[in-house]
Nucleic acid binder design. Structure first.
Lengths: 337, 337
DNA sequence: TTAATTAGTGAAAGCGTTTGCGCATCACTC
DNA sequence: GAGTGATGCGCAAACGCTTTCACTAATTAA
């Protein structure tokens, strides 16, 4: 049942080297031989032993994913599972296997990456979560191990990454609100230090600007985190002195906080938008207008980028273009806007 | 930076074989030597090359997961991501890597399993989705490749599996409803051919029975699938002639269908329960009483079972006990009951 | 015509481990 | 003091593949 390269070689009447070359589509093998060998492989149901292949110096067709182990987030937001699906779509199609690991902290992650790399199992890493001063990124870079980041890279020039166009996404949201007739539009963001917050904030400003609106300091709030609690605080601040038409937030959780505050204080008629298109946003009452950041496509692109990199000539990997993709996000209008 | 077993051997003043034996905790090595070797490994940051190890005959410490690629299901129900987390908790702790693949059909799955097995990458498989007449199970069994199934096994004696105690879970639900004062309790299940439907149905019957209630044929419906549509049909049938106090369903989707029908027909006061504790169940209005089937623990147990199997003496694997786990499910009372 | 090149293939070394076998050494036993 | 059985370790042969080098035959260039 289980056959190896020698069996195939014998059946095809060639040497193992030739079989190996056929597998890797070496141009030096004649078409005739290739056909013979392929028939033999077919007949024996031969599948190359990846471990041996890796040992012998051929980089293994396996990617390693690093996932954060945050039960709450994982539960409420199907981002990760969908990103994984996206990655798998492209990777499997290209004959790559996928390794994954959940890690609870940065230390953990580095440990895994170390193991990944040294084990000889994998040839590239996908980081599904971008942090500030990410030590994983640093480690991977200094190990000169190929990787791609989903999310914002701190050093976008020297990193391979895919991300949403967050500026454009929020621009789109605010534009939509304006077209719906809203004039005084508030903003509730996550921590200011996060690039994603900045980008979305800038999209907000730019959208207002392009319509000749002037941003009002009182309508803008940046939370300490992305939680519902911060959303509540945001609503509190914004509604203290003025009453806006709408509040755009950078995260569904924040939006839920805002909605909660509105409900608790019986304030009606405000439009509210979120980000991430979580399951809750589609089912709670009122359903929340949100932005689908397209996690599956993010994953797919990430895999594509990484695999292109891996299959390119090793010596000139640094010159590979593109080193990033911007994935469009899509506004999903629902009851809250 | 990257060291191999020879480097360690040299530094420790022993032969590579000794280092290998230390790694695998061979009893024939003296404590002194072990300590010396371990220090050397530490100093060099040595991590064994898993590919080489696998090649040399040591079964690799990697498990392969087979996931269905059903976007809708994956999205609405965090079962899989949580099961994956559970698996990873145990597996990573035991030093195992995890490979995963999404497959869109059975053909696909078999293909992956074939690749998995022959590639030499993995030593065991976790099937996250149980089907009737599962050809994957068949294939794995005939290949004599270790695997564990999450869900109901068709041949429970000769399969390693973990599952909820579905009988007990539904018994608990109905019992709860009865204690809440409900007397006429309907049942909406999935396809009758599914074991899970049978088990939960039996739990329902038994619970009624134990309280001296007689099941009423008119209050019982088995759908063609687990969809919202089937839930609607179920409610339609059950409410045709009689008006029950409560309807217990075997799936949140079915429950949503029932609730939808009730709302559309302005029928109030009925208790409704689901299964799976989906995100929607916690956030829609009214929030749905559901059963948390504890996917994380299912995953953890599955990994435990499989790894125990793998680490046991190969010759007497068949006698390993337990070959299954029953994971308790937990009723989550919410507004609908 | 001869030399140089190219195409197509095989032989063999090596990748980093594991492991069966064997060789010492040591502690007992009779 | 010879025999026995542990104990502790090294040697060397795999494991299945890739790849360099070398070789032959066929083609092209000079």
């Amino acid at each position: 049942m289980k056959s190896n390269i020698k069996d195939v070689a014998k059946l095809a009447g060639v040497s193992p080297s030739t079989v190996s070359r056929v597998i890797h589509n070496n141009t030096r093998i004649s078409e005739n031989t290739k056909i013979r060998v392929r028939e033999a492989m077919e007949e024996l149901g031969y599948i190359p032993n990846a471990a041996a292949s890796s040992l012998a110096g051929h980089t293994p067709k396996t990617l390693g994913l690093v996932l954060p182990n945050n039960p709450g987030e994982l539960f409420k937001n199907p981002f990760f599972i969908n990103a994984m699906r996206g990655i798998s779509v492209y990777a499997q199609q290209q004959g790559y296997f996928l390794l994954y690991s959940f890690s609870s902290d940065e230390e953990d992650e580095i440990q895994f990456i170390r193991n990944y790399i040294n084990s000889g199992w994998i040839s590239g890493v996908v980081l599904l979560t971008a942090r500030k001063n990410d030590r994983c990124v640093e480690y991977l870079r200094q190990s000169e191990f190929p990787f791609v980041l989903i999310g914002h890279a701190e050093d976008p020039i020297n990193t391979n990454w895919v991300d949403n166009d967050n500026f454009q996404a929020m621009y789109q949201v605010v534009n939509y609100l304006i077209e719906k007739g809203h004039r005084k539009i508030g903003f509730v963001g996550g921590p200011e230090t996060f690039r994603v917050t900045q980008d979305r904030y800038n999209g907000y400003l730019q959208a207002l600007n392009s319509r000749g609106f002037v941003p009002d300091e009182e309508l803008i709030f940046m939370g300490d985190d992305f939680s519902e609690g911060s959303g509540i605080k945001g609503a509190e601040k914004i509604l203290k002195n003025t009453l806006p038409d709408a509040i755009a937030t950078t995260d569904d959780q924040l939006a839920f906080g805002v909605l909660g505050f509105l409900e608790a204080n019986r304030i009606e008629g405000l439009a509210v938008t979120g980000f991430n298109n979580t399951v809750r946003s589609m089912y709670q009452k009122p359903t929340l207008t949100s932005v689908d950041i397209n996690p599956e496509l993010l994953g797919e692109r990430a895999a594509e980028l990484l695999i292109n990199l891996l299959e390119s000539d090793k010596s000139k990997r640094k010159d590979i273009v593109p080193n990033h993709y911007l994935v469009p996000a899509k506004l999903i209008p629902r009851e809250t806007a």
